[in-house]
C-alpha cells in the first residue's frame, strides 16, 4: 500500500544502494497539507507569530531535537525520548503523525494519528516550509528516509502465547523492574497489549532510537513480541 502511494505521489530523486537504503523525495503536496493541518492548528501554531499553546509551536521542527523548545512543558514521555536521542527527522515525524504513542509512550499529544501516508506526507510538506535549518534540500537529511516495512494489521492481530511471554519477560526484568519501579529505566508494566506491541515493533524497526532496545527487540519475532505483550498484560 505504502509503496504504491510513494510511487504515485512522491518524486523519487535519488536512490542510494548499499547497506542503509535511503531515498530522498519531495515530501508531498504542501498546499493540500495546509488544509489537513487545520485539525492540528487548535494546539500547534506555525509562522512568524507562532507561539506555544496546548502544544509547542512547530517552526523549525525538522532536524530539531525532541523537547528542545525552551519554555514549553513537555510530557515525561517526550523528554525521555529526547534523552534517548530522538530528533525530528522526516521518518520520526511521519511515524509520530501515524500513531503518536507508537513513537513516544506517554506523550500528551491526544491525536488519533493520520492513517493515510499521503495525508502525513502532505502535512509534513507543509511544515517543511517553516523549517529553515537545515536548508531546504530534498535530497539531504532530514527529508531522506530509509525504506521501512509497514506494521500490518496481521501483526497487530497475533494472539500472544503468555506462557512463552513470561519466559521472554525474564530478559526484560534484568533491567526493567517487574513491580513497575522506576530508577532510571522506564516501567513497562500496565501497558495495553497493543501499546506494548507497537512500541516493541517501533524499536525492532529502529524507528525508536534507543540502541539497547533496538537490539533487544530486533531479534524478537512478531510472535515473540505478541507473547511478551500478552504476558505483560496479565501482571498487575
Amino acid at each position: 500500500m505504502r509503496a504504491v502511494a510513494i510511487a504515485v505521489f512522491f518524486w523519487i530523486a535519488l536512490s542510494a544502494s548499499g547497506g542503509a537504503e535511503q531515498e530522498a523525495r519531495e515530501i508531498g503536496d504542501a498546499r493540500r497539507g495546509e488544509t489537513i493541518f487545520r485539525q492540528c492548528a487548535d494546539c500547534h501554531q506555525v509562522g512568524s507569530d507562532a507561539k506555544d499553546r496546548v502544544g509547542p509551536h512547530l517552526n523549525g521542527i525538522f532536524g530539531r531535537k525532541a523537547a528542545a523548545n525552551d519554555g514549553f512543558g513537555y510530557s515525561d514521555g517526550i523528554v525521555r525520548a529526547a534523552n534517548d536521542g530522538l530528533v525530528w527527522d522526516l521518518r520520526r515525524l511521519d511515524a509520530y503523525l501515524e500513531n503518536p504513542k507508537a513513537l513516544v509512550s506517554g506523550t500528551r499529544m491526544n491525536f488519533r494519528g493520520l492513517a493515510e501516508p499521503r495525508d502525513r506526507a502532505d502535512v509534513l510538506a507543509y511544515l517543511r516550509g517553516f523549517s529553515d535549518n537545515p536548508s531546504d534540500i530534498p535530497e539531504a537529511q532530514p527529508t531522506a528516509r530509509p525504506r521501512e516495512v509497514e506494521l500490518s494489521p496481521e501483526i497487530l492481530a497475533i494472539v500472544g502465547d503468555a506462557e512463552y511471554g513470561e519466559y521472554l519477560s525474564s530478559e526484560c526484568t534484568g533491567c526493567h523492574q517487574r513491580d513497575g519501579g522506576y530508577d532510571g529505566i522506564p516501567s513497562i508494566t500496565q501497558w495495553s497489549a497493543e501499546d506494548f506491541m507497537i512500541a516493541m515493533q517501533a524499536y525492532k524497526r529502529k524507528i525508536r532510537p534507543h540502541p539497547v532496545m533496538q537490539m533487544m527487540a530486533g531479534r524478537l519475532s512478531d510472535e515473540e513480541i505478541a507473547a511478551l505483550a500478552a504476558y505483560f498484560g496479565t501482571i498487575e
Binding site: 534484568g174 517487574r178 532510571g184 529505566i185
Partner: peptide, 19 residues
C-alpha cells in the same frame, strides 16, 4: 547522552538487584 547512559545504569542496578 552520556549523562542519560549513566542514569540508565543506575536504573539497571535497581532492576537487576530486584531481579
Amino acid at each position: 547522552l552520556r549523562r542519560v547512559t549513566y542514569e540508565e545504569s543506575i536504573g539497571w542496578y535497581a532492576g537487576i538487584t530486584s531481579d
